[in-house]
Structure formats: C-alpha cells, structure tokens
Design a protein around this nucleic acid. Sequence first.
DNA 1: ATGTGC
Length: 559
Amino acid sequence: MPATRVTIASNAKQSQKAPLLIPASATTDPAAASSIREFVFKAAQSKLRLKKPTRIYVSPTGQELLTEEDWKNNIKDDVILLISAGEEYVGAKKGSSSHVDANPDCPVEVLASKAPVESLSVTQLTTTAHTLPGIVYAVGQPDLHPGTKFPIGAVFASRKWIHPPLIGSDIGCGMAWYKTTLPRSQVDGDKGRKVAEKLRGLEGAWRTQAQREVWLRNHDGSCSAGEQWDSALGTIGAGNHFAEIQVVEKSSLVEDNELGLRQDDVILLVHSGSRGYGGSILRKYTTDSHTSFEEGSPEATEYMKEHDKACQWAQANRDLIALRFLACLEPGNENWQLGSSTAEDTDDVDVATVEQTKKTLGKRKVVDIWHNNVERVDWPPASPSSTKEEEDSLSTLADATTKLTFNDDTLQQEYVYIHRKGAAPTYNPNTQLPLHLLPLPGSRGTPTLILKPTFSASTSWGLLNALSLAHGAGRAMSRAKALSSLSQKYKGQNILEPRAADVEGTWVICDEKDLVFEEAPDAYKDVEAVGQDLVDAGVASIVGWCRARVSYKVRNEAR
DNA sequence: ATGTGC
C-alpha cells in the first residue's frame, strides 16, 4: 500500500498547517509504538512546533480519533487532522445539531478580486455566518484573512443575537488621525531619523492612577477600568499596533473646515485599542461553550455596557498616545505639557488642565474610528433621502437579507447588531452621518490611502459592505510564516531604516526582534489592491494618500 | 491582542 497524503494543522491555530505523508508501515493501532498516532504527534512537534500534542480531530467533522476503528475509517488521502494540546475541537462541528436561530442560507459576500484571499478565511466567514444564531449577512472586506477561529477583516450583521467572540479581545481597537504643526521639511528625507530620535519616554505607564482617572472622565462619568487595566493607558501595545508620523502626499479633499487633510500636512496616525481591559471583558462573559447572547438577556445587556466602556477607554487611550507623541514632536507647545514624560509625575491633579488639554487635542483630531466593535444599526440601511417605498424596492440583496429573518415575531425589528472584526465603519456612530475620510494604512513603508466612503443604490446604500470598509492591508502571511521566511530573506540587513538611496523610505522603531519580520510589508497584502477592490465594489473612493516617515512600534528603553 | 501559558 502506498503512503497516505494528509494535512496536519494546529487545532488552536488552524493557519499553522503542514502536509504529511504517512508511511504504509505505520499501523492503525493507536497503542502500538509504530502507530500512525505517534507518527502524527512527532510531525506536529517538528512541523507545527506543538510542544505536547495529545489529541487528534478530523476536520471539519470534529470527530476525535480514539479507537483503532476510528483510525482505520479516517486515514485517507487529503484528510485534515487537527492536532490538539488537550483543548476541545476548535470550530463548529459540521453535521452536529445546529442552533435553532442559525441561518444556513445566510448570504455571504467577499469584496475582493485584486487582493488575494486565502480560502481558509472564506471558510471561516461562511461557517460563522451559517452556524452562529441570528446572522443575516456576512461580508469579507478585501483585507480578509484567517484568524484563530473567526476571520479578520469581516463584518457580521446579526438579529437578536450578540456574539462577543466575533469582536475578540481587543474591544474598541481602532485608529485616529491627528494634525501636527510640523512642516514636512522637518520630517522629510534624512530628517526622519531625528524625528524618530525624539520619540522617547513613551513606553511606561503615564502618571498616577488618580491622573489617569481624570483623563478617563467623560460624558457618562468615567470609563476607568481600575488600576490593573488603567496602568496601560497611553501605551500602544503589541502586534499590529503602531503610531506613525505621516506626510499627506496627495489629497483631493475639498474641505471648508480645518479638519480636512491637505497636501504636505504632517499628521499622526494612532492604531491601538483597549489593551488588557477588552480581553478581561471577553473572558468575563464568555466560555468555550457559551459564546452568543440573546438580546435583552442580562448578560447581553451587561456585556454591551462593558463593551461600550472599553470602546470609550480605547478612544481615550488613542488620545493619550497622541498627546504623548505631540509632547515629543512639538516640544515648545505648552498645550502638550501633560503628555511630557519629563514632567513631574506627582503633580496635583488639575481637572481643568486635563479638560483643557483634551479639548485642544480634540481640535487636532481629524477622525477616530473603532474597527473592533458591535453596534446596533437600522437595517437595511436607508438611502440618504428616500421614502419607504423606495427603500423597499432596493436591490435584490437587500430583499434577500430582510426576507430571510422576517417572520411574525420579528416583523417590527428593523435593526441589526453589526459586529466588526477588523473593519472600519463608513459613518460616525454619534451623528449617523457618513465619514468624510478615513485611513487605509498599508504597512510601514507602503502608503496609507485616504478613503472616502461612498453610498449609492448599487450597494443598497451601504448594505453590500455592511456599512464598513477594510481597516488595513490585511495579512498575506501568518505571523509564523512571516517570521521564518522574512527573517531568512532579510538576513544581515537592517530593514528598519530606508535604504541608502531611498530618501522617501520609513524609519521604523521596533526593538522586538520577531515583530520586525511579523509586521514587515511583505507579510501584508498590497494596500493598493485592497483600496482598488473597495473602489471596484463601489463602496469607497480614494481621495489621497500619505507616506509614513516614522513608524513607532515598540522601544526598549533601558534608561 | 494579551499582566497570555506550558
């Protein structure tokens, strides 16, 4: 008998996978020394870097391979084996009884043709849409890529049900753009190095808990999460988070107000979230087996309340990061004194000063969006000025979505919960008005596109894209793959500085060795392709672009 | 993504 060709993948991280040839000499008896079971475990250790593999499941049924009979029946060419370190099968078991509120025919759209989309992410998108209760529409943005269980760059519209795991642990993560007063001559070319040098004292905690609590005061009272989580306030975090000094290279925005973006403006883009706080909320409310809450239930209400608080916290965090950066970038400006790391930490809390600083900073803020959140929105979206009859005669997609779930009980329900996991909104949630612009960052040296959401009958006024856009270029490579292949590719090179001949490259501050490669531009899709897919789908126009001059990831400050 | 997890 010839060898059997299978795929092994980590159960916890299914993006980690490897082909495997099982020799005919291996036996189906799991107790034998030369068992297929042992062979697969050894391969999982070496190829998937799993330390202690103990259980094996078949994908997508979720059947665990235990008896010799199980092994005989399942080891065939092309089978996918998920290797577990003890944890339960990750993913919905196909063929198992599905939820009564699930919509197996839920429409799923992927707005990508130029940008590459891995099939695993489409499987995750579709499986989620068809198995979780209440989902009426799912859309993959062109930056769609696989996550641990749910895809990133995805939007799920759900009736009656709220799904915290679709938001993930970084509740409130998003991006904000701030204007600086620097002229581009101070950041262009080799000046970028000097700007990068100025960015110091940004890693540790900001001031005292009492002062952080003042910063976290808002219209609802406070979004303080207690000292355990507040101590990270004003810090960027890890992974794909960053703060970037950019120059507007082109902008065709015609703005009357001062909050447009003009060519040659030097601006600050902050991408961060709720740090440890959001994750604590997700863990508090969900378990492995309890992941979806029915609207109106106490846990749904409490989760939403804490979720909203984490979104406020994340926004206050971006503002404080911006303040700390502005204190470095505009040292003469006393408005930013509060952000300076050299100022006395033990200053008395002056509420008026904090309020004044927040107000001044607010005038610099061009836009601020959440790309990890859930919110209730009217559905289907209304055209800007339409009568009810016009709305009813919108595209067939709108009809398909609404008809699916309209029954006697839900006839009155004309809203959904939009779950965004790495997807930017097209409108301001406070005013319900379309956003005039928002960032589509590439990575490091690649451009950040300035997007303007568009609304028309051809997209059913935002239904097609679920009132959302891509939030970035999106991963083209898993972190593991980027680390192994790109560290080889750039061996011996410094990829954190522009190459000698390149006066327009980006200065990157990244003292984490692995992150240098995991976040390298090569690990991401081409942002131009992602942007073009949005344009081709009719959901956005590209109104300009920015060049990153300094990208701040993380600094090791052994001061 | 993370005051994470063997």
